[in-house]
């Protein structure tokens, strides 16, 4: 055979080409790219500041009635205000593990963004089917698993990039790392995000793989999105939820990724056995869901 007919017979050939195809739709479209950066600013700026829970317990919000103030000396009053302030801090510490809600929420936000990014990328398989690209790809020697993996990989890379941006943007809003933070923690956060995104995007692709309409998967995903976000520790700690909600939130893989990231980023001490369990939980989620995704792709793309 002449050199002209040389082809790669690697099982993974085409993976990067197909992944890059998805990514180009994002980084080559300036409007989309800028919007993905603006969105976290809005979330952090609006929700993070509007829900300023720290201010609930502060000398301003707990002002004493004037009749009571008159009974204290100035020194006693200052002491009382310090006490209220301290009470506020310890309430925040006790509930959120940090005295800044912005820090708490920013970590929830990175995972929440991962959920959204993977959700939308799950739709792309429906479009590929509708526009005939999927059939074209299936007629080439590219492996069926690679078609699925490229979508998982592009969603994962994109979500990881966006998470980085959110954390950077959160700094001027008051995001502060905890005492246990080291540069290595960032790699740990990426590992969590990677595992979570692989699991989530495999799940959304599995939901969409047979569908030819946009509406049904959209409805299913919107339905899933709400409990996944709010029955998790994204915006409020699980330990302070009612019992039934705790039960749901404590099987939600998002909670484990979020809690793990919080340990790495904003907590003052790291519980390593807990951290290991969190990695294991999210890791198993990723392996199980991506296996399901690949099995389904073999089943439905090989009819």
């Amino acid at each position: 055979m002449s050199q002209e007919n040389k082809v790669s017979k690697s099982k993974l050939h085409g993976l990067w080409a197909l992944t890059n195809r998805e990514l180009k739709k994002w980084y080559k479209a300036p409007v989309v790219f800028v919007l993905t950066l603006v969105q976290p600013i809005l979330w952090l700026g609006l929700l993070g500041n509007a829900l300023n829970l720290r201010s609930l317990v502060s000398p301003d919000s707990l002002a004493l009635p004037p009749s009571l103030v008159a009974e204290f000396t100035a020194d006693q009053l200052a002491l009382l205000q310090d006490f209220i302030s301290g009470l506020g801090n310890s309430m925040m510490q006790g509930t959120f593990g940090t005295d800044s809600y912005i820090s708490f929420m920013a970590v929830g936000m990175i995972v929440f963004t991962a959920l959204f990014t993977t959700m939308f990328s799950g739709m792309s398989i429906v479009w590929d089917r509708r526009l005939g690209f999927l059939n074209k790809a299936l007629s080439t020697p590219v492996s069926r698993a690679v078609i699925i993996l490229s979508k998982v990989l592009s969603a994962t890379l994109r979500a990881m990039f966006q998470a980085t941006i959110i954390l950077i943007i959160a700094i001027p809003f008051g995001f502060a790392v905890g005492a246990a933070f080291t540069p290595l923690s960032i790699l740990g956060v990426y590992a969590f995000l990677f595992l979570l995104c692989v699991g989530l995007s495999s799940m959304f692709i599995a939901i969409n793989i047979r569908s030819r309409s946009n509406e049904t998967p959209m409805a299913v995903m919107n339905l899933l999105n709400m409990p996944l976000t709010f029955a998790s520790s994204a915006f409020f700690p699980i330990s302070r939820m009612p019992g039934w909600l705790q039960a749901i939130a404590s099987v939600n893989p998002l909670s484990y990724a979020i809690d793990g990231c919080r340990q790495l980023l904003i907590n003052d001490t790291i519980n390593y056995s807990q951290l290991l369990f969190q990695y294991a939980y999210v890791g198993i989620f990723a392996v199980v869901l991506s296996s399901i995704g690949i099995i389904l792709s073999w089943r439905y793309l090989n009819k």
């Binding site: 082809v7 690697s10 085409g14 195809r21 005939g132 074209k136 020697p141």
Partner: peptide, 30 residues
């Protein structure tokens, strides 16, 4: 084999060259 499907399968967000190179990569052509 080569396939020219009924639909326009080229990705609208990519250029003509990018589309044809994507095809080449799916065949594993260096």
């Amino acid at each position: 084999i080569g396939v020219v499907p009924q639909e326009y399968t080229a990705d609208e967000d990519l250029t003509g060259l990018e589309n044809i190179m994507l095809c080449a990569d799916m065949y594993g052509i260096p």
